[in-house]
Design a protein around this nucleic acid. Sequence first.
DNA 1: ACAGTGGTATGATTTAAATCATATATCTGC
DNA 2: GCAGATATATGATTTAAATCATACCACTGT
Lengths: 204, 204
Amino acid sequence: MLRSLPEPLLKLARPKALKAKQMLFHVGEKPRFLYFVESGKIQLSRCLNTGAECVLQVINQGFLAEASVFNHQYHCDAHASVDSHLLAFPIAEFKQDLHYPAFRDMWIQLLSQEIKRLRNQVERLSLKTAQQRILHFLFTEGDGECYQLTQTKKAWANELGLSHEALYRNLNSLQKSGEIVINQQRICFNRRNLKTSNPKAVKH
Amino acid sequence: MLRSLPEPLLKLARPKALKAKQMLFHVGEKPRFLYFVESGKIQLSRCLNTGAECVLQVINQGFLAEASVFNHQYHCDAHASVDSHLLAFPIAEFKQDLHYPAFRDMWIQLLSQEIKRLRNQVERLSLKTAQQRILHFLFTEGDGECYQLTQTKKAWANELGLSHEALYRNLNSLQKSGEIVINQQRICFNRRNLKTSNPKAVKH
DNA sequence: ACAGTGGTATGATTTAAATCATATATCTGC
DNA sequence: GCAGATATATGATTTAAATCATACCACTGT
């Protein structure tokens, strides 16, 4: 992904290391850098007026808060959930370099991808039951057969808009009813059900 | 918004009229045109494997399915919910014209905006109760004080991920408890509660 | 004027998730 | 290796939304 970046911009990138739980930026601050996550895990979140925290996105690898390029302030908080390594690109130069066709195309594609991902998440959160959300997630984020869990189940529950208890219980019952098989971090659809159970599922 | 489009591209735009309930495109089709909604209302939706329909977006005015510019197939259905007028831009030429800096900047801003809007919606759908979702919607989509409803309550309920009954009941109880005031299509926060009740609410 | 359709509204019942409580397992820093 | 924190897990209870039912209203086309 970094391959499409123009040389001069790459040279301007400053490495930045974050310890677990360290903040990267806060809501309301003026964006000066656009960050690329090389390793680790960055969470975008926002505190609701109820005081509860809502995780908007978890980035393992890739650009972060893409919208900040054209915004005067961050609309969410960002912190590292584990030790992480980032690259910081100065936003002014980044904007300049959008003139390069290859870079511009990459950037537009990236934004479009993110829109699709978010539409998937909206669709998923519109589902009423825990089981439906779990299956929808496995269909859209997995390879069609399996999904390798890359976070804790608790964090996953949050992403699914469920209490962690509801996730534990429903994973259990999905396994008991034979719809899925769980090996440690790997969750697979039961082969026998795969063809017939969800004919309309659409991969993104 | 159309102002930023280059002259040659504008000349290529073909008007397209849709009757209510008429389909614009189906999931899986190859995108040939990027559509701009001039008037009316276009719904992007997707049928879930359960058979239920999920509304992903309702466009009254603006571009539609932005991601289609770089995709080989639509990932959702689109139909007009009322009689609508669109402009159809050939995608090949559209891509060409992204070379124009003003146009490219507009397009990137537009995609970024949409990402923010979707993040808001994800945040909203993560809220557990109907009341929280309603208030969150009024805060993020309204002007900070009031919101002018532009669709039926039934359609709104769908957007909020609620049954229409739940929306009716909770609007009623929010009004009774004095948190909001409803005049026909206009919903306002009660002035007295405004300052103190939701200090952390963030406008996008 | 009329019938049919879809939105609005409210009551009764069911259902599933949230919450609370508690226990065990696992990871992490010292 | 140990202590504290966090994740996993499951049971009991509460709660709020979904669902089902019914009624009324507004709009549309004939």
